[in-house]
Amino acid sequence: KNAAKIVNEALNQGITLFVSDNKLKYKTNRDSIPSELLEEWKQHKQELIDFLTQLES
C-alpha cells in the first residue's frame, strides 16, 4: 500500500493524519483506532511523514 491510499482509508474512517514536529499524528472523533490501522501506520511511518509533509508544503 502506498501513503496516499493509507491516508485516504484513514479519512474514510473519520481519521485525519498529519505531521507535527516531524512526528505522525492523528485527529479523530472516534473512541478508538483499530489496531490494524495503527500497525499499518507504524509500518509505513516514514513514507506517511514524507507524503504528508510534501502535501503541506
Rank of each mutant, 00 (worst) to 15 (best):
D21C: 11
K25S: 10
I15M: 03
F51M: 03
E40M: 13
I49H: 03
L38P: 03
S32A: 09
G14A: 04
L52N: 00
S57I: 14
I49M: 07
Y26N: 02
A3T: 06
T28Y: 04
H44S: 05
G14T: 02
I33N: 01
T16I: 15
I15H: 03
N8Q: 15
D21G: 11
H44L: 05
A4S: 09
D31C: 09
I33G: 02
K1Q: 10
L55E: 10
I49R: 02
K5D: 15
L11R: 13
E40K: 09
I15N: 01
D50V: 08
H44D: 02
T28G: 06
L52Q: 00
K25T: 07
S57Q: 13
T28M: 04
T28V: 03
S35M: 14
L55Y: 12
Q13V: 07
R30D: 05
N8A: 15
K23D: 15
D31S: 12
K45I: 15
N12I: 14
N8F: 13
F18V: 06
S20A: 12
K5Y: 10
L48Y: 00
G14S: 04
G14L: 03
S35Y: 11
N29A: 11
A4L: 10
I15V: 07
A10G: 03
T28E: 02
E39G: 05
E39F: 07
T16H: 13
R30T: 06
T28K: 03
E56S: 14
D50Y: 10
N29F: 10
N12Q: 14
A3L: 07
N2K: 10
L17R: 01
T28F: 04
V7Y: 15
N29I: 09
K23R: 08
N8D: 12
V19F: 05
A10P: 00
E56H: 13
E9A: 08
T53C: 08
T28W: 04
R30A: 09
F51P: 00
Q43N: 11
L38T: 05
I49T: 03
D21W: 04
Y26P: 01
E40G: 04
E39K: 08
A3F: 04
L48G: 00
D50H: 09
D31M: 10
N22F: 06
L17V: 02
P34M: 03
L11S: 08
S32E: 11
T28L: 03
H44M: 08
D21E: 12
E9S: 06
A3M: 11
A3R: 02
K45W: 15
Y26F: 12
L37Y: 06
L24W: 01
L11A: 12
Q13D: 04
I6G: 00
L52S: 00
S32Q: 09
T53W: 06
